[in-house]
């Protein structure tokens, strides 16, 4: 494996881990539910995307690479849709959250 490719992988994975850490920090620090949803969806998906990007050159075959990309797309879709559902539920107050 060429040095350049290794460097690229290390940078990408490290940056991905950084975004995961920031996401966790945001989830703890941000003051309200909606703002926390921002941190959750955006940083997580970007973090996972960068980690997967960094792993791509090290996979045994292209099928595994496609599988990882598929996992990323699934997480993206689930994350964005899930955050919309959580926000909607909180806004409409039809869950048990907003009862005093």
């Amino acid at each position: 494996m060429s040095l350049l490719l290794t460097l690229f992988s290390v940078l990408s994975i490290a940056l991905g881990a950084f975004f995961f850490l920031v996401g966790t920090l945001g989830l703890i620090r941000l003051p309200d539910l909606f703002s926390r949803l921002h941190a959750l969806t955006k940083t997580d998906n970007l973090g996972l995307g960068l980690v997967i990007l960094g792993l791509l050159p090290w996979l045994p075959d292209p099928f595994t690479a496609l599988k990882l990309v598929l996992i990323w797309l699934l997480v993206l879709l689930a994350g964005a849709t899930g955050s919309h559902l959580i926000a909607k539920r909180a806004l409409r107050g039809d869950g048990e959250d907003l009862t005093p």
């Binding site: 997580d44 996972l48 996992i71 997480v75």
Partner: peptide, 16 residues
């Protein structure tokens, strides 16, 4: 909902 988000974060990080 906050707890659910915490669990979601665990899930995504766990995948990574």
């Amino acid at each position: 909902a906050d707890r659910m988000m915490g669990a979601q974060l665990l899930g995504t990080t766990g995948i990574a």
